[in-house]
Nucleic acid binder design. Sequence first.
DNA 1: TTCCTGACTCCAG
DNA 2: CCTGGAGCCAGGA
Length: 114
Amino acid sequence: MNHSESTRNFFEDVYDVVRLIPKGRVTSYGAIAAYLGSRGSSRMVGWAMNAAHGQKPPVPAHRVVNRNGLLTGKHHFETPTKMEELLKKEGVIVEKEAVKEFKKLFWDPSAELL
DNA sequence: TTCCTGACTCCAG
DNA sequence: CCTGGAGCCAGGA
């Protein structure tokens, strides 16, 4: 397989995992990267999210935050408050750029997807 | 092709 | 507690 094919599959894999995140739960870029077998590629997960807009079926990118629960990707949504609004709609409280009860709401694909 | 950037994370000081 | 550097690797200029 060539380079573009493996890239496409990596993105598809990321989207599939993100779509499996339960409503009202969140995970991190690093957790997804680790689940896909490339721990150091957390930045690529973020890059994938950057290209996730308009995907069918939709990719709930708002459920992916950084390892501390901070909404570092909020500026990539339609509006800077969109990410927080979507989370709040699912019952996730966001306080000062971060997910409240992050540890409790954290969904780890490596542990949940057995 | 090289250089730079980035929705990240870890580690050293 | 905070800062900087390194590793990561796909794209755009």
